[in-house]
C-alpha cells in the first residue's frame, strides 16, 4: 500500500511529488474548469464538472458533460396568452 503523496508546488506549472521514499516531477495547469496534468509521461485532462479522464479520450477542447452545469439565469413568469394585446413596455 503506497503512502499518500506529498505534493509541493514549485511554481510555473511544476510540482514535486514525494511518495514512498521517491520523488518525481509533474506538471499541471488549471484553466477555468479544466486541469491538465502530466506525470510519468502521460497527460490527463480533468474537468471539475465531470469525471476525470485521460486526454486521449477528449473529443475537443470542451468536455460536453461540463455543459450540464446549471447556468445562472432568472426565468420570469409569462402571463400573456393567445389574443393578448401588447406594447413596447410589456414583458411576455
Amino acid at each position: 500500500m503506497s503512502a499518500a503523496p506529498r505534493i509541493v508546488a514549485l511554481g510555473n506549472g511544476r510540482f514535486l511529488v514525494h511518495q514512498d521514499d521517491a520523488q518525481q516531477l509533474a506538471w499541471a495547469v488549471a484553466d477555468g474548469g479544466v486541469t491538465w496534468v502530466f506525470v510519468e509521461g502521460r497527460s490527463y485532462r480533468i474537468s471539475q464538472a465531470a469525471a476525470p479522464r485521460r486526454t486521449a479520450q477528449a473529443s475537443g477542447h470542451d468536455d460536453p458533460r461540463a455543459l450540464s452545469a446549471p447556468m445562472p439565469a432568472t426565468v420570469p413568469p409569462c402571463t400573456s396568452r393567445s389574443g393578448s394585446r401588447s406594447n413596447a413596455a410589456t414583458c411576455c
Binding site: A9, D31, P52
Partner: peptide
C-alpha cells in the same frame, strides 16, 4: 482507458487548482 485516473493524478490536479487559486503570480495558465 481506466474509468478513473490514478489517485496521484487527482492529487496533483487538486494541488494545481490550489496553486492557481492561491498564487496568481506563479499561475501557469
Amino acid at each position: 482507458l481506466p474509468a478513473e485516473p490514478p489517485a496521484l493524478v487527482t492529487a496533483i490536479a487538486a494541488a494545481a487548482g490550489a496553486s492557481s487559486a492561491h498564487h496568481p503570480a506563479t499561475r501557469t495558465i
